[in-house]
Write a protein that binds this DNA or RNA. Structure first.
Lengths: 224, 224
DNA sequence: TCGGTTAGTGGACGTATGTTCACCCACGAG
DNA sequence: CTCGTGGGTGAACATACGTCCACTAACCGA
């Protein structure tokens, strides 16, 4: 179940040099990953992050409670690492979207399809972000807000270079992008709540429509 | 700090009969309210609901842990009561908005001002709704979703009677209303995160702009 | 006035928690 | 080959938790 394959290590050099890292560091990294995975795993079973206990996490990770301290000062610190890692997933999504380029035709629908698939195949990270963005401990919520804001800013830049809304000031574009992002994160919660195996199509349709409304409004927008 | 004044009791019969309830029931209601207040109070200090412990709640409420069971089976059940109560606050807001009627001029801005004030003066309930709407225990999240959906439906009806968007099908209007509601709940989180005494005006402006974009888009919307 | 009902109490239970410490022992630099 | 470093262990601690029980005392119908 633990799908963590940190460092995809690029093109999979077969056997030549397993890793340049010392075996010591490898082992450490593995249990560290096990701890992070355990936390995500527990959240995947309906728990919220800051109700997780240290012992609970180590139990799922298959190590003794004391080992936890070799990696994190407390669960809180693990949470911040989780924010960082999830933010990386967000950025990876943006990067892939950039590489795919802007589909000229039916752009919103295609983007939503890609997004829904991405959310499902990165379920744990989106579960964390969407779940702790509101409600969790204040400092973790703040950290997530920072990352989401940064993500929004990058998206804004991208949209600016695509000159879809040439009449919008940077501020207005940002305001609209943040509306788009929060709408999409909101939809992520719904997508993740689906019983697995169920089809996300009605939700996708709804998201497509909502984004279309926003983009329609954006085209008409004039700063007073 | 405990602002609970349960049962506004409708038209406020002045002094004739303090309450028809037996003193026994009054007392019970008072500690029940104290428990609910305690939970909200703890959340107001940055905790998320399902990290609250039974003993913790009773401690703040000023009763012994065992007393809790006289009112709720467990903390979970208290949570569901909290959902109900918060939903009541939402409905109260809608009712007041209805009574105020639709301001013909600058309607969005006025509504946002009223909304922001309402969020601040019902801080605890909005904190609960906005915080547990995503992330909390699945069954509480489900209950909140139901209430928010119902709220959205009522808002949709209201907007329909105002015939602002006569060209929209009921489904489309609902889709747009749910976008409006989630945008406003999202803003509630931001408003509540402000350090107290700080002015919410920039946030209000942002929310006004986002809603304007949505309404602009809604006017252009045509079902294909 | 009496007596049943019941909200709230106080103590005790088993279990879980976070954190500490001394202890292993495999790794890897010298 | 040797030895220090450091990730993982196991036992122990004080404390907190949820839940149970017998008990008190106030209320209210009889």
């Amino acid at each position: 179940m633990s799908v963590r394959s940190r460092q995809p290590s690029g093109p999979e050099i077969p056997e030549s040099e397993e890793e340049v890292l010392p075996a010591r560091g490898q082992r450490k990294q593995r249990t560290r990953d096990a701890l992070i995975d355990a936390a995500l795993q527990l959240m995947n079973e309906g728990r919220s992050f800051n109700s997780l206990g240290l012992r609970e996490i180590t139990r799922v990770a298959g190590v003794v409670p004391t080992s936890f301290y070799r990696h994190f000062r407390d669960t809180h610190e693990l949470g911040l690492v989780l924010v960082e890692e999830s933010a990386l997933t967000l950025r990876r999504m943006l990067r892939e979207a950039r590489r795919a380029g802007a589909p000229v035709k039916d752009m919103i629908r295609r983007s939503v399809q890609v997004y829904a698939a991405f959310v499902l195949s990165n379920r744990l990270h989106f579960l964390f972000i969407a779940g702790e963005r509101t409600g969790g401990s204040p400092v973790i919520r703040g950290a997530i807000r920072n990352e989401v804001d940064q993500f929004t800013a990058e998206l804004t830049q991208d949209l600016r270079h695509l000159v879809i809304f040439p009449q919008l000031t940077p501020d207005s574009l940002q305001m609209i992008c943040s509306l788009v992002v929060s709408t999409m994160l909101n939809a992520a919660t719904d997508i993740l709540d689906l019983p697995p195996g169920d089809v996300a199509l009605p939700l996708e349709d709804n998201l497509v429509h909502q984004l279309r409304v926003i983009f329609l409004g954006a085209q008409l927008w004039r700063d007073e």
